[in-house]
């Protein structure tokens, strides 16, 4: 128990930070306890060797990678700069409108009703086209029937200006 208490004070004792009473207690214990005395010597040895650890040498490759970090960040920023050019603004405006319309359609809670309405309009368009097509066919057929009469009428007419000869 006492050894454990003394262990907690060893660094402060080593660095001469203990109050006089604690210092005397540590010295007394170290003089009588071989285990703690060895431990204290090793603690001092540990601290001295740690103080001599050098700064590690950094590799050239790592240094280059570190120098590149701000440049990479700058490049990334330049790549986005084109977005603020005035010439790009009309395209961005069109893209915004399109996105708004598309998202209005895609995320509209009445999407199925809109789909039905669009289908109905498409069908109406198709039937109008079909109707026009059949009317055109009827007209072509009636032209075919009256083709001979029309040709006769044209032939019987005197060309312009001959009546006066």
């Amino acid at each position: 128990m006492e050894c454990e208490h003394i262990e907690n004070l060893l660094s402060s004792y080593l660095e001469d930070e203990l109050a006089a009473e604690d210092k005397r207690a540590v010295e007394k214990h170290l003089a009588s306890c071989a285990g703690c005395s060895v431990l204290f010597d090793l603690l001092r040895e540990t601290q001295e060797s740690l103080a001599e650890f050098p700064q590690a040498e950094i590799s050239e490759a790592l240094l280059e990678r570190l120098y590149e970090i701000p440049q990479r960040k700058r490049k990334f920023r330049l790549n986005l700069d084109f977005l603020v050019r005035p010439a790009v603004q009309p395209y961005l405006a069109v893209a915004t409108v399109l996105l708004t319309v598309v998202s209005f359609y895609l995320f509209n809670p009445e999407k199925s009703a809109i789909d039905r309405s669009i289908n109905r309009q498409i069908h109406l368009g198709y039937s109008k086209i079909g109707k026009l097509y059949s009317e055109a066919e009827t007209f072509t057929a009636s032209l075919g029937e009256h083709k001979d009469n029309i040709l006769e009428t044209i032939k019987s007419k005197q060309p312009f200006g001959r009546n006066g000869d």
Binding site: E7, L10, S11, L42, L43, T46
Partner: peptide
């Protein structure tokens, strides 16, 4: 913490 670390390292050495 520093003291505990030093003591642990000293015990490893021991």
């Amino acid at each position: 913490r520093v003291n505990r670390g030093r003591v642990q390292l000293a015990k490893v050495l021991k």
